[in-house]
Write a protein that binds this DNA or RNA. Sequence first.
DNA 1: ATAGATAATTAGGCTTACCTAATTAAATTT
DNA 2: AAATTTAATTAGGTAAGCCTAATTATCTAT
Lengths: 219, 219
Amino acid sequence: MTSLAEENYLKAIYKLHEKTGTIVSTSALADSLSVSAASITDFVKKIALKKLITYEKSKGVKLTEKGRQIAINIIRKHRLWEVWLVTKLDFKWDEVHEIAEQLEHVVSDELIEQLDRHLGYPKADPHGDLIPDAKGQFAKSNSKPLINCTVGYKGKLIGVAEHSNSFLQYLTKSNLKLGDEIAVVAIEDYDCSFEVTINNKEKKLLSKEVVKNLLVAEI
Amino acid sequence: MTSLAEENYLKAIYKLHEKTGTIVSTSALADSLSVSAASITDFVKKIALKKLITYEKSKGVKLTEKGRQIAINIIRKHRLWEVWLVTKLDFKWDEVHEIAEQLEHVVSDELIEQLDRHLGYPKADPHGDLIPDAKGQFAKSNSKPLINCTVGYKGKLIGVAEHSNSFLQYLTKSNLKLGDEIAVVAIEDYDCSFEVTINNKEKKLLSKEVVKNLLVAEI
DNA sequence: ATAGATAATTAGGCTTACCTAATTAAATTT
DNA sequence: AAATTTAATTAGGTAAGCCTAATTATCTAT
Ligand SMILES: [Mn+2]
Ligand SMILES: [Mn+2]
Ligand SMILES: [Mn+2]
Ligand SMILES: [Mn+2]
């Protein structure tokens, strides 16, 4: 029904819209999918005919409700597979994305249903990203970037806003993981670096770049 | 490196050769892959150039060692996934083939290694088919079709020679499963039907069609 | 050995998903 | 408001995998 390429386009549009909040441009898509802008224009016209997106010439694209449901389902599958890879196959959180990119396209509703059950209906993936339910519904999150917090704030690390291997590996190396309790001890005005304690023990200095990408929530 | 289509062609060639012991004809492949004979001729020429098979015009094809290794690896993956689906996700043995057909093409050596470990290095899949090791080596089997056995024979059901859903469902309905002990009580000359006992208890009458497809081995 | 049947190949096309180069439209600078 | 830069589209192709119809090769029966 939906081709591999279509699934990847819809997912990319979903993610870009999520990030920017705006209509998604040809160039943003071209960049994200590593495909030429000309090919994007072509493809986008085709899936607009199938009512998966709306396309405004020279403006950009938006998902229709139908397209959005497909995108969310792919994301659901991706995140469930990531949970499986980490919890059952002992992969590290920086090793699962590529494999999940392939597994997310396997087609079988019963498979995903059983996988979800096997995993105990997880609410979030190994990076803290929420897993939508079978109806495409997300639980609502109250997480915020640590950089928005002030001195004295105490919260739990529940996700990351950046998924690059280098960032994930940096966190692992720094002994920081989801679930850790973070308290803001001081903030350096000059470079916006944070002095924090992890689980009421270790003191750590985190750069602006890092605190921007750490998502925390009330305990 | 190897496309989805190539993988499926190589696997089909492997299986047809395994079944017939001969060079694999264009029409057999066309039949097995549900693709026109013309397309087979085309494709077969291409993968012969890549040294995955040898192709003799108007005769048929054979796997090279390289092609054989790829085919066996796909089969290994297929069977490991089937084991996973049955043992971890609680699918029935007649529900797993289609899903495994998709999963077998996921590319990641570490994934398969970890999956194998997660499953406890199974020797056979849910249908009793042997799972080759990472080097492509099969354990050797001493199974034979029940139809080759004589009255008085006692053995264990360790596999099936036919994988259709209808056959698998027939066995399930008849309460016959891998591991069951089968003893041949009598053989009717006229229609070659077998009277057997299952696990030294239930008496059962099995038609020739059925005993041809049951694989047994010494206990 | 030849006719007829069956199997395989060739020729010519199609669709999907991509590409580059050229052109046009939109946004920025000056 | 022009000029320039950047973004998007159009035009024209390509490669992978498939197809049908026509032709040729091989096998089987008489
Ligand atoms: Mn991911
Ligand atoms: Mn993730
Ligand atoms: Mn199977
Ligand atoms: Mn099997």
